[in-house]
Design a protein around this nucleic acid. Structure first.
Length: 943
RNA sequence: GGACGGUUGGCUCAGCGGUAGAGCAUCCGGUUCACAUCCGGAGGGCCACAGGUUCAAAUCCUGUACCGUCCACCA
């Protein structure tokens, strides 16, 4: 087993960083040292449970985003001294998974019914063994430091214990009931699904106005006209309903109509639920296929289960229409009604239609016997907790959304008529008489017979994992288990504690592994933060809160970090059918894992969707190369016999550049910590990018080169050691700061530096290093401020060079005029300007010759200006110079006017904060000074 | 029907009460001993629109438009 990484002792690195060469090695190094593992100790835990991906899943950008964020948080927490644990695992994925496997079977021209329940499940388990861990392996490629020794699966032994325990407890305490209700039925998946699993989409359709002939029609009123979008369901109508307040229909209430095509007599009733504005104000009531109609029919004690569409979406109980597909039947019904002259009109109509979120088939609402969880009391507890702030949402607005949903919660249909899942632990006492007829059937066959047909309806069902020994009601000893399985989200809702072995008590001796689970549950639960996209906030997150509170009396996590959805550049959700998918694995191949992670994290504003294209990753890839070369440069300048450490760095020997970069580092370190607390990961990545590239590389390293190249005198040697020590210190800090986002690169470099004994922090792996909360080198912040002088002068020189199209190798002379205090600093650090401005010589306080161009450089921190002239023999066009200066003169003048207005404004002086007024005053002085100088230059040119 | 979010340079986004920022793209110039996946410079925005609050508004409030999302018993 490989416990260390091979790193040679050389200070040289190849010219281009090749992530693919090192990533896998590094990941194996982590694994073999178990750095990602956690066990309870005296530290405070920081726990995340992964939103378990479906076993059918292949890593997509959404996973990349979701898991990178979690990995960043876990790595940061670990460096901050928490006992960090990230629990990985997968979800069995109920319907979705069964669909996938059924499709595979179909290729062999078989259905699940051909195999039968047992064989089919064997087949599924085998399939899951083969491919179910694909996505977890892909997470490893992403660099995720989950504790793999704790990998769970919602259908493994440990999680199943929790599922059974939870169901039985809820059942015995009266939260679970069975009842005939309208459910959302998917005719393709052949199961009920819950309300939130239905996806509504706008559809273009028609609104048909159908005349229902009145019984005992009078001359005035022959018909009542109803409007419907689903004419085929009229065959199952049990009434026509109007609003009791509707004047138009006052005389109709209580009368009867003859339902066309079936010639059934149905009443006209009045119900408040009817919207008078809609259609004709009269509505057909089809209780078996519409939720509202079901309620109305119940209110009026009408038949509620007159089903005309069956579980296959075929018509039943409707004479000649029986057996037709529902949409086929619609056409027939309309045709027949037209023949009878009963279609008054047809209007174009847009309305939303429910689709199965798993297979995109139009949902058929129908009455069915299902298991439900009573949600009101569970929700009430969750509402209180969220309102008390026991769970905090980032961003906050999801709190309100969740509360609103919880306050309007409906009972949760948890039974599914599929085979893949946790079989409902409920047993029915078998009616031997009824079963006599079924005697020759195997248990396999019994599964296909509605349980009503062979159970004793008088005996209550018993919730139990194992077959009960005796019926408490009739003493019978024959039982049959409910054939349905639980909604996949039922097991997911227990995830934050099922992964820690909640449910163990009942099975104490059965699984050795569970020995420590009580201890662990207490230590790790509740977890810290849940990271998820907003699309499963109700489906999953809210339910976890309810279950956590119910079973453990504690919310399962104190924070919810909500991120957005990954979309393409046109704002479309990425999907295979649209062909706009960007495969993270491809990006990894092309740009490296770190670049992928850094990109994704940079784009991910809290709660905001992110838009990606192939090009989105280029910038991060370039950044990786930049920091690679930055490291490479520093290593190139190492001298073996020297010792570099922060002890070599003393304030009195430091330059303004040293002080400046350390002060900038300090600001960075503070803001990074603050932003982690608010989960503003994208701000962190931006700040790091800016510091590293624009401050450290562009300025500090460039200046450091000066001192690194000189190595003769004792002072020079001392200066070189000091500079190298600072460079190495900052490099070390940059690596630590970046590590949570780009773990591979930073570990790679850490190992190298550690081996060369160049690090302050002696941790063997950067994963185990300690986050530096405050810069450990003392620096002088006043000196740091002075760096602005150098920066502004250099920028101005560069700008002038480009303006006058100077050859890149040309080294002009410049003249700088200003007050002594400023010039003292400039003189001291003249060498910086010579180098960065590519200037030959600087003269001070001399008169500028006519062949020069001049600019004003503003130095904000002391509110002074300096004059900067560049000598350009034969390159000056006096007229152009005048124009340039005049333009600047005018702009400055305008600006001064705006400042004067402010300062003359009494209200501004009395209302604005002091700092602000000071700032304006300084600006005013600065601009006045500039203006005077500009005027002088112009006059000189005109002479 | 309700609610939420977005609208900032050609593109992707940051800024969220005090003189408009970054990356990419564009243009100009570059083999100065880390990096052309680079270096230096430049152009480009009355911050969707209309009102209001404020000494001061891209930033707060109200309304409108467009885009996006979620929720609802749209028959």
């Amino acid at each position: 087993m490989e416990h260390t990484l091979d790193q040679d002792n050389s200070f040289e690195l190849p010219k281009v960083y090749a992530p693919s060469d090192v990533e896998e090695k590094i990941y194996n190094y982590w694994l073999s040292n178990h750095f990602e593992q956690s066990c309870p100790d005296s530290r405070e835990p920081f726990v995340i449970v992964i939103p378990p991906p479906n076993i059918t899943g292949a890593l997509h950008m959404g996973h990349a985003l979701n898991n990178t964020l979690q990995d960043v948080l876990i790595r940061y927490a670990r460096m901050k001294g928490y006992n960090a644990l990230w629990v990985p695992g997968t979800d069995h994925g109920g319907i979705a998974t069964q669909n996938v496997v059924e499709k595979l079977l179909l290729k062999e021209k078989k259905t699940r019914h051909d195999l039968g329940r047992k064989k089919f499940l064997d087949y599924m388990w085998e399939w899951r063994k083969q491919t179910g861990d694909t996505i977890l392996n892909q997470l490893q490629k992403l660099g995720c430091c989950c504790d793999w020794s704790r990998t769970r699966f919602t259908m493994d032994e440990i999680c199943s214990l929790a599922v059974n325990k939870a169901f039985i407890k809820l059942f015995n305490e009266g939260y679970i009931y069975r009842g005939e209700r309208i459910v959302n039925w998917c005719p393709r998946c052949h199961t009920a699904i819950s309300d939130i699993e239905v996806e509504y989409k706008e559809q273009k359709s028609y609104l048909w106005f159908i005349k229902y002939p009145l019984k005992n029609a009078d001359s005035e009123n022959k018909y009542i006209v109803v409007a419907t979008t689903r004419p085929e369901t009229m065959l199952g109508d049990v009434a026509v309903s109007v609003n009791p307040k509707d004047g138009r229909y006052k005389n109709f209430i209580g009368r009867k109509v003859i339902l066309p095509l079936v010639n059934r007599e149905i009443p006209i009733i009045a119900d408040e639920l009817i919207d008078m504005e809609f259609g004709t104000g009269a509505v057909k009531v089809t209780p078996a296929h519409d939720l509202v109609d079901f309620q109305i029919a119940q209110n009026h004690k009408l038949v509620v289960n007159l089903k005309v569409v069956d579980e296959n979406a075929k018509m039943i109980n409707v004479g000649k229409y029986t057996g037709l597909d529902r949409f086929e039947c619609r056409k027939q019904v309309i045709a027949d009604l037209e023949t009878l002259g009963l279609v008054e009109k047809v209007e174009d109509y847009k309305h939303s239609v429910g689709f199965c979120y798993r297979c995109n088939t139009v949902i058929e609402p129908l009455t069915s016997d299902q298991w439900f969880v009573k949600m009101d009391k569970l929700a009430e507890k969750a509402i209180q907790s969220i309102e008390k702030g026991e769970v905090v949402y980032y961003p906050e607005n999801w709190k309100e959304h969740t509360l609103r949903w919880l306050k309007n919660i409906k009972d949760w249909c948890i039974s599914r008529q599929i085979w893949w899942g946790h079989r409902i632990p409920v047993w029915y006492c078998v009616d031997l008489v009824k079963t006599e007829k079924l005697k020759n059937l195997t248990e396999e066959d019994l599964n296909n017979v509605p349980i009503k047909n062979y159970i004793k309806s008088s005996c209550p069902p018993i919730a139990s994992v194992k077959k009960p020994s005796k019926c408490s009601c009739c003493g019978g000893t024959d039982f049959i288990q409910d054939p349905d399985v639980l909604d996949t989200w039922f097991s997911s809702s227990l995830w934050p504690f099922s992964v820690f072995g909640w449910g163990k008590e009942e099975n104490n001796n059965e699984i050795d592994k569970l020995k420590n689970f009580n201890l662990e549950l207490n230590y790790y639960y509740p977890t810290r933060v849940l990271v998820t996209g907003y699309e499963i906030l109700y489906l999953w997150v809210a339910r976890m809160i309810m279950m956590g509170l119910y079973f453990l009396n504690k919310v399962p996590f104190s924070e919810v970090l909500v991120h957005g959805i990954v979309r393409d550049m046109h704002g479309k959700k990425m999907s295979k059918s649209l062909g706009n998918v960007i495969d993270p694995i491809e990006i990894v191949k092309q740009y490296g894992t770190d670049a992928l992670r850094f990109s994704v994290v940079s784009f991910a504003g809290v709660g905001k969707d992110i838009h990606l294209s192939e090009e989105s990753f280029v910038s991060a890839r370039n950044f990786m190369n930049k920091i690679y070369n930055m490291t490479r440069f520093i290593l190139m300048n190492i001298e073996r016999e020297q010792v570099y450490c922060i002890k070599n760095v003393t304030v009195d020997k430091m330059s303004i550049a040293d002080n400046w970069i350390l002060s900038e580092l300090q600001n960075l370190v503070f803001s990074v910590q603050k932003n982690y607390e608010k989960y503003l990961i994208n701000s962190i990545s931006r700040d790091l990018f800016d510091f590293v590239w624009f401050k450290f590389c562009d300025w500090y390293i460039e200046i450091a080169k000066l001192r690194l190249s000189k190595n003769e005198t004792e002072t020079e040697k001392e200066q070189k050691v000091l500079t190298m020590s600072i460079l190495l210190y900052i490099l070390e800090q940059i690596l630590k700061l970046l590590h949570p986002m780009i773990p591979f690169f930073t570990e790679h470099m850490w190992q190298k530096l550690q081996k060369l004994n160049l690090l302050n922090d002696k941790s063997e792996s950067i994963m185990k290093s300690v986050f530096t909360e405050k810069v450990e080198i003392k620096f002088d912040s006043f000196s740091a401020q002075k760096f602005e002088l150098i920066e502004n002068i250099v920028k101005e020189i560069r700008s002038l060079r480009n303006n006058f199209k100077l050859q890149s190798n040309a080294k002009p002379e410049i003249i700088i005029c200003g007050s002594d205090d400023v010039l003292d600093v400039v003189r001291q650090y003249e060498i910086y300007i010579l180098r960065l401005g590519w200037v030959n010589r600087i003269r001070y306080n001399e008169n500028k010759p006519s062949h020069s161009t001049t600019s004003i450089v503003k130095i904000n921190f002391i509110a002074k200006t300096i004059e900067l002239s560049m000598l350009l023999e034969g390159m000056i066009d006096i007229e152009k110079e005048k124009m340039r200066l005049k333009k600047e003169f005018e702009e400055t003048k305008k600006f001064i006017v705006s400042l004067e207005e402010k300062l003359a404004n009494d209200k501004f002086i009395s209302c604005a904060p002091k700092d602000e007024i000071e700032k304006i005053k300084e600006r005013y002085i600065l601009s006045k000074e500039s203006l005077g100088k500009l005027e002088k230059f112009i006059l000189e040119l005109e002479r």
